[in-house]
Design a protein around this nucleic acid. Structure first.
Lengths: 209, 209
DNA sequence: CCTCGTAATTGAGTGTACTCAATAATGAGT
DNA sequence: ACTCATTATTGAGTACACTCAATTACGAGG
């Protein structure tokens, strides 16, 4: 077996990577076109040109397939946005910075409301499985960035409050985005609601200084 | 057709009420014994002694059946706890009062972890259907009670902040309870986490005074 | 080039949520 | 008592997520 060098992965590895990519692309295309709920695993298999059983080798459940897609998109987005300015230079007050951190979620919800709602549901209530774990890792990374803003001089929250506040914001944003999709936010704009939510947590985290 | 008096509902109405009660009892028993996920609609039908299709007449989906049970339990609990002292006399600070308001949820999560998790998931992410709407109505009532505590003299939050804070607390509690069930709260006790969460929101809601 | 253990793939099979056309029961009107 | 429109019930049928025993493809060692 080859070690060290990652070169010449062998036919089998290449075939696997290829199949994985095809399944991912098929799932993405179908979720985008028909939504998560109305897409069947058979359709994904057919579009990816593999047998049904093969899809389950790469994602053990339909929800896992969704998380696989979410992880890929999140990774692509991150790579596209962290290259030029090494970790954005932090403009505006803490609440504005936090709003900026969650804006990719808001954008995703605008572009793909139905699948994104399912991602949010999976993040908060899904069963523990490998693809979801990776997404959860990213969510935790986001929470840490939010917590850092709550800890910095302008807010000055102690560690525990910052962690609690960050989690509250993430949870609240996910739930509120879903609520807006269901038309359960009366007249108001989602951004206003989210901003109020963030402001409240920032104030609360800072208050225990 | 009879109006005004609710007496003598007729054979058909009585049969319906009876069937409904049997389905409710069967669902409750099975959810309690085997959990929500591992209970099949056929089992419920068999235990309730009706055909499979009949269950779907009373609850259009399995999730709706769960919400039907949740509503019944919530109603029973409420009736049992509001009779003696007409609306409890509010002891302790705002955070303690809010903790008391959500304690039935915490208790339910302790007693029936698996089904309660599904209820929380349904509340936050379920599809709009009649039984769920009634449960949501109760959740909104709870939020209003929490908001009232945030608005009162001790905290003094303005209306908008109180509403935002109440929603944050409910959402955060539901998510945090689920997280604790998944063993994702490290060493700490759930109550400590929930208390920190409530304290933060109380501080944040009060800060915008 | 051949052999053979291992790992990937396959698709028919299974369980279950949900549908719906047919049937049965009800009760208002006569 | 009978008719008949309305409404509830039924259970076989459908679609789909997921399983698994059989098959195929790979590649390391000779």
């Amino acid at each position: 077996m080859r070690h060290g060098q990652a070169a010449a992965p062998g036919r089998r590895e290449r075939a696997k990577a290829d199949k994985r990519a095809r399944i991912l692309a098929a799932a993405l295309a179908l979720f985008e076109e028909r939504g998560f709920e109305r897409t069947s695993m058979s359709e994904v298999a057919r579009l990816a040109d593999v047998a049904q059983g093969t899809v389950f080798q790469y994602a053990a459940t339909k929800a896992e397939l969704l998380m696989m897609v979410a992880e890929a998109l999140w990774g692509a987005h991150e790579q596209a946005n962290t290259a030029p300015p090494r970790s954005a230079p932090a403009a505006g007050d803490a609440a504005a910075q936090i709003a900026a951190l969650i804006s990719p979620f808001v954008a995703a919800m605008r572009r793909w409301p139905e699948p994104t709602t399912w991602v949010a549901r999976e993040i908060l209530f899904g069963a523990d499985m490998p693809h979801r774990q990776r997404v959860l890792g990213r969510v935790e990374g986001l929470e840490e960035q939010i917590a850092a803003r709550l800890r910095d001089d302008r807010v000055g929250a102690p560690g525990a409050a910052a962690a609690t506040g960050a989690r509250l914001i993430v949870t609240g944003v996910l739930a509120e985005l879903n609520r807006s999709r269901q038309g359960r936010i009366d007249g108001e704009d989602v951004d206003v609601v989210l901003r109020r939510l963030i402001d409240l947590v920032v104030a609360g985290a800072g208050a225990s200084r």
